[in-house]
Design a protein around this nucleic acid. Structure first.
Lengths: 115, 115
DNA sequence: AGAACATATGAACAATTATTCATATGAAAG
DNA sequence: CTTTCATATGAATAATTGTTCATATGTTCT
């Protein structure tokens, strides 16, 4: 046995090398935070309703059978993750998908779940 | 005003139409469940350590400065989501990424966060 | 200005979940 | 077969988070 202190599969030097090749903690945190936003049924549903048309809060709530408050709370999270954008139209706020990443992410996710 | 009962942006018929174009609840649930697996810093870190090399549990734990137990618990979740696979090598379990979806998902996620 | 409507938001509660600790399983070596 | 090592797992705890309820903000209309 070459190294009696190494109780793992690879040697400590390689471990150190691998550790240093990891992205910074902050980047990994932001990444997981993004996924966490997608990781809720309600939010996924909201995003899906916006796939084809822009909608106001009340429409989304009716469409999903949820309360206005709950939808609004979740939209807030989607906004801060830059997954949806909005514009004011009189008393209403019209929400829409912010960019095509949302569609790609969901499509890619579906590919995996459909296997 | 055409329809005084419609307090939303679009008409009730369109809402119904949109509702029926949504994927089934089960599909959306599975999708959000998949994202939820990615939505944790520890699990993202584990996945990243497996980007370049297959590793045993102890190596991952050392690399990330986490307890063996915690890593094992999270690997269990990654396994059941089919994001990692494993093989036995004597006393050790060698884990590796299950397929390329993992890489694509993380890459796509990074594209969004890096904006 | 006041009423009505659409949306946002704060606090409280319930449910989910990541980590820790202790212990169990399973393989290899003496 | 007993000990040692690597991993898995169950129970308990602490922290996070989604929903509800009540209320605030901001817009339109009279």
């Amino acid at each position: 046995m070459i190294d009696e202190k190494n109780n793992g599969n690879i040697d400590p030097a390689s471990i150190e090398e691998l550790r240093q090749s990891l992205p910074e903690d902050e980047i990994l945190y932001d990444l997981s935070e993004l996924f966490r936003v997608f990781g809720d049924t309600t939010r996924i549903k909201i995003l899906y309703t916006l796939f084809e048309s822009e909608l106001c809060v009340n429409d989304i709530a009716q469409l999903l059978g949820m309360t206005q408050s709950s939808v609004s709370h979740q939209l807030r999270i989607l906004k801060s993750a830059k997954l949806v954008k909005f514009k004011r139209d009189g008393k209403q706020m019209i929400y829409s998908l912010d960019d095509d990443h949302v569609r790609s992410m969901i499509s890619l996710g579906l590919e995996h779940t459909e296997e």
